[in-house]
């Protein structure tokens, strides 16, 4: 009996089946830990009217900004979308639907979607416009609002190392939303900087178990653009 093999050739094979109108999750915080290869493939496929669940929306000419520029996105579900003029223009003109969600609620909603929790109560957003007509309930005298789980047709995530069984290890703060979204995709596609045979990663150190990953491939040409390069003198 062999290990279940999740390997696909590249982003093109990884994103096979992505269609117009689908809901996609994309890992990353800012431009850190974004699935660069899959984003390029979405641009090439030119899928339309997609809903993107991603903490941020990239910058004008990189990351999700590339999809926004080509007007492929119908709706964004994010916590923070600054740093992108085209995004702001489309949002203010009404071309783009935007659902802004507190970052912790966004993370937990993705996690919940992956682990079979349909909804949960959180204090974040109570008394603000995020509350809307969500159910409010008090626990220990403190009001909370009911937030529902999020899932996606495809979750596109980026990891540092992965193996042929789909097990993933992330590097530093490039982890962020990736492990949560990996759990919440009907089809989760992982692109990694280093793909190794199953058995080579230490099982003690794996962050995302391969059961959550349907397709994995070795990514190429990572740019890893830095948004705010901040350095000190020596």
């Amino acid at each position: 009996m062999a290990v279940i093999n999740k390997v696909v050739k590249d982003a093109r094979e990884g994103c096979e089946g992505v269609q117009d109108g689908m809901t996609l999750m994309l890992g990353g915080f800012g431009l850190c830990g974004i699935p660069e290869n899959c984003i390029s493939e979405l641009v090439r496929l030119n899928v339309q009217d997609v809903t993107c669940i991603s903490n941020n929306a990239g910058v004008d000419d990189f990351g999700l900004g590339l999809l926004l520029k080509k007007k492929q996105v119908k709706k964004m579900i994010s916590s923070y979308v600054g740093e992108n003029d085209e995004f702001e223009r489309q949002m203010l003109s009404g071309e783009l639907e935007v659902d802004l969600i507190p970052q912790g609620s966004l993370a937990e909603r993705c996690r919940a979607g992956g682990v079979g929790i349909p909804a949960f109560f959180t204090p974040a957003g109570y008394g603000t416009e995020v509350q809307g007509n969500k159910e409010v309930r008090e626990f220990d005298g403190k009001p909370h609002i009911l937030e529902s789980a999020l899932t996606a047709d495809f979750a596109l995530v980026k990891a540092w190392k992965g193996d042929t069984a789909g097990n993933l290890i992330y590097k530093a703060t490039a982890r962020n939303f990736n492990p949560l979204m990996a759990m919440a995709g009907k089809i989760t596609v992982a692109e990694v900087e280093e793909l190794v045979p199953a058995g080579e990663l230490d099982p003690n150190e794996i962050h995302t178990p391969g059961i959550f990953v349907q397709r994995i491939f070795q990514g190429v040409n990572y740019e890893k653009r830095i948004e705010q390069r901040t350095v000190r003198e020596s």
Binding site: F29, G30, L31, C32, G33, N55, E83, Q103, G104, L106, A107, E108, C110, R111, W160, Y170, K171, A172, T173, A174, R175, N176, F177, N178, P179, L180, H207, K224, I226, E227, Q228, R229, T230, V231
Partner: peptide, 22 residues
């Protein structure tokens, strides 16, 4: 791959730890 919430590049101190957003 190592930034803060303001998207600035940072370093990690000895004993630092990384985790997911949830």
């Amino acid at each position: 791959d190592l930034i803060n919430a303001g998207k600035q590049t940072i370093t990690a101190r000895p004993g630092a730890v990384y985790f997911d957003s949830a």
